[in-house]
């Protein structure tokens, strides 16, 4: 496995004092924390930085690490790394819940402590919570739907060591009226606890899938309806799609482009009642025109004597 240079990861000198290391960690944590950072590999970078911090903040762990680092540089400091035979970390310290998911390098140096050392994990640990994005179609939010979901969960042994991954499948009832970003808690469906401790929870984070026709604004829906210029001028009847069955809508004569018509109760369900559907009119020019049609436009131009930019000249 690869030897990790924790000092380089934090961008500090190996002689750096605790305060310098803490400052470096804080700065990098703010830069790469996945909740904050927009950088592509933020999560991986943050894990590395957190791992380095976990070791260097702890005087015992840091001393162990420094010892191995010195040994390694005496041996030339190249090639894959193996922990020396019989290696035992000196602190033997208890399990830190934030350790999980660190590199094999970290595990090989510091996980021995969990099995034999004082504290260990014999007292148990609550299972981990898992957060999963659940894409939901708008159509599915109108009524309560049962959706099959499956996800991968890390598996730990009785010492709290990562031993693999397992796929878990569940049927989940998605309550009507869920909104984008809402979280649904599935109690006890996360990773199993260690010892007598309960399993963690699964949080489903609802992600409304963008719809080809409808836009969402709170609990209201917006549908853009294209109209020919003469339909907007003379009025017409249009069949408008809704999330359930289409409805016939009268477009009044002289409707302006961008006008919004409200259809009550055809939006998304919510705790406060049913949202509305807004129909947004979009006047669209016909594509190619023949000479005949051009003549008609010319006639219209003469008769209407309409200046759409009248406000500009003021």
């Amino acid at each position: 496995m690869e030897f990790k240079d924790y000092y380089a990861l934090l961008g500090v000198e190996p002689e750096a004092d605790e305060a310098t290391i803490k400052t470096a960690y804080r700065r990098l944590a703010r830069k790469y924390h996945p909740d904050i950072s927009q950088e592509k590999d933020a999560e991986a970078r943050f894990k590395e930085v957190a791992e380095a911090w976990q070791v260097l903040k702890d005087p015992d762990k840091r001393a162990d690490y420094d010892q191995l680092r010195a040994m390694r540089s005496q041996q030339g400091g190249r090639g894959p790394f193996e922990a020396p035979p019989g290696w035992q970390p000196s602190d033997g310290g208890g399990f830190d819940p934030s350790d999980a998911g660190f590199s094999d390098f970290f595990e090989s140096l510091f996980s021995g402590a969990r099995q034999g050392g004082r504290g260990g994990s014999a007292s148990g640990r609550r299972g981990r919570d898992v957060e999963i994005d659940l894409p939901v179609f708008l159509e599915d939010t109108v009524s309560s739907e049962t959706k099959p979901i499956s996800f991968r969960l890390p598996e730990y042994n009785q010492y709290g060591e990562l031993i693999g991954e397992a796929t878990k499948s569940l049927n989940v009832k998605i309550p009507a009226g869920v909104t984008d970003g809402e979280r649904i808690r599935l109690k006890g469906q996360g990773t199993a606890g260690v010892g007598d401790m309960p399993a963690g929870d699964v949080y489903l984070r609802i992600r409304l899938v963008p719809h080809p026709l409808f836009d969402v604004e709170g609990h209201n829906l917006i549908v853009t309806v294209p109209l020919a210029p003469w339909e907007a001028a003379l009025g017409t009847k249009v069949e408008v799609p809704t999330l359930t069955t289409p409805i016939n809508l009268s477009i009044p004569a002289h409707s302006q482009n961008g006008k919004k018509l409200r259809i009550a109760g055809k939006g998304l369900p919510s705790k406060a009642g049913q949202g509305d559907l807004f129909v947004l009119l979009k006047v669209v020019m016909p594509p190619a025109t023949s000479d005949d049609i051009n003549q008609l436009w010319e006639q219209l131009a003469e008769k209407a004597s309409f200046d759409p930019r009248a406000q500009w000249s003021r």
Binding site: Y25, R26, A29, R30, H33, F46, A50, D129
Partner: peptide
Amino acid sequence: TRAVRLRRELQ
């Protein structure tokens, strides 16, 4: 839960 995690991770 998020606040506790952020506090530990961001110090």
